[in-house]
Amino acid sequence: MPEKTPCPPHPVLPAYYRDGGERVAFVRSIFDRTAQYYDRINSIFSLGSGKWYRRLMLRTAGLRPGQKVLDVATGTGLVAQEAAAITSPTHIIGLDMSPGMLLECRRKLPIQVVLADAQNLPIADCCMDMLSMGYALRHVRDLNATFTEYLRVLKPGGHVLILEIGRARSPLVQGFLHLYLGRIVPFLSGVTTSQESRTLMAYYWDTIEHCIPPDQILDNLKRAGFSSVRKQTSFGVFHAYIGEK
């Protein structure tokens, strides 16, 4: 079977790295340097809405008690924490490419953690009931390679849940997002935590601004082999991509 053409989630962003080869090192470094502040930053840009939304989407995607979950790009464990409340901490594996983020995750959650990249999961075939990813799809190198790995580790009948934020169709809402996420949040992050946090949130916004459209993400999930692929959108910008193996 011929290899699929690589599909990066957004073009090279020269303000942060010079080419695609430098992307991984930059992403790992910026998350390592801001890991201790990340939960505080998240509380600024989510306005307290994140916790209930993550748990609702996990249930919507099909997570049930007793099921095994691989939470990719787990960060400080914000999605894993809600998954553990539905199933059990012993049924969760948190995976991330940032050692700093995994350290913060282990401080608050008694789950197994793995240092690895989303495109190369050190997980056996067909062993997970659900694979989740919260607001990190924009940081992978290639959607096609990533989704192929996701399909591989899921059991038949297992589900993938990818939470993302995207551009708003309404110019008014997009203008508000640009002001809030593009200007206010980076400024507040820098003032209340560190300059690195300001850089992280500026990068966060730029990846949203330049990310490929939702329809292309859905198409890539289908091409990888997922069925019953769908998207649930809340407030015009929060997207939950769901698929089944």
Rank of each mutant, 00 (worst) to 15 (best):
residue 128 M to G: 08
residue 140 V to M: 05
residue 199 T to C: 06
residue 190 G to V: 03
residue 186 P to T: 10
residue 124 A to P: 13
residue 153 V to Y: 09
residue 133 M to W: 05
residue 165 I to H: 02
residue 160 V to R: 01
residue 189 S to R: 05
residue 120 N to Q: 15
residue 199 T to K: 12
residue 174 Q to W: 09
residue 198 R to I: 02
residue 148 T to F: 08
residue 154 L to Y: 04
residue 160 V to W: 01
residue 155 K to R: 13
residue 191 V to K: 14
residue 198 R to S: 15
residue 123 I to P: 00
residue 124 A to H: 15
residue 190 G to I: 03
residue 192 T to Q: 08
residue 155 K to E: 07
residue 142 D to R: 08
residue 151 L to T: 04
residue 158 G to K: 00
residue 129 D to G: 05
residue 121 L to C: 11
residue 156 P to I: 05
residue 178 H to S: 11
residue 136 A to C: 05
residue 139 H to W: 07
residue 133 M to A: 10
residue 144 N to R: 13
residue 184 I to L: 15
residue 185 V to D: 11
residue 179 L to N: 01
residue 146 T to E: 07
residue 199 T to V: 02
residue 139 H to N: 15
residue 170 S to M: 04
residue 163 L to K: 02
residue 186 P to Q: 12
residue 178 H to E: 14
residue 175 G to P: 08
residue 122 P to L: 10
residue 177 L to G: 02
residue 126 C to W: 09
residue 159 H to M: 08
residue 142 D to V: 02
residue 139 H to D: 15
residue 184 I to A: 13
residue 193 T to F: 15
residue 153 V to K: 03
residue 196 E to S: 14
residue 163 L to S: 11
residue 198 R to Y: 04
residue 147 F to C: 02
residue 127 C to S: 15
residue 193 T to Q: 14
residue 130 M to D: 07
residue 136 A to D: 04
residue 196 E to Q: 14
residue 197 S to Y: 03
residue 143 L to I: 08
residue 127 C to G: 13
residue 169 R to F: 12
residue 166 G to P: 02
residue 139 H to V: 07
residue 160 V to C: 00
residue 123 I to S: 01
residue 135 Y to D: 04
residue 174 Q to R: 06
residue 167 R to S: 08
residue 197 S to W: 04
residue 154 L to M: 05
residue 135 Y to A: 03
residue 171 P to D: 13
residue 177 L to Y: 02
residue 184 I to N: 10
residue 140 V to S: 03
residue 162 I to H: 01
residue 155 K to L: 03
residue 138 R to G: 07
residue 136 A to Q: 02
residue 166 G to E: 07
residue 168 A to F: 11
residue 196 E to N: 14
residue 125 D to E: 13
residue 162 I to Y: 01
residue 197 S to I: 00
residue 157 G to S: 08
residue 165 I to E: 05
residue 148 T to H: 12
residue 179 L to T: 01
residue 198 R to H: 12
residue 175 G to Y: 11
residue 145 A to N: 02
residue 183 R to F: 14
residue 169 R to Y: 12
residue 163 L to A: 13
residue 171 P to N: 10
residue 124 A to E: 15
residue 128 M to E: 13
residue 132 S to W: 06
residue 132 S to T: 14
residue 174 Q to P: 00
residue 159 H to P: 03
residue 144 N to D: 12
residue 140 V to P: 03
residue 145 A to M: 01
residue 175 G to K: 03
residue 141 R to Q: 15
residue 167 R to L: 12
residue 192 T to R: 09
residue 199 T to A: 07
residue 146 T to N: 08
residue 181 L to N: 03
residue 153 V to W: 08
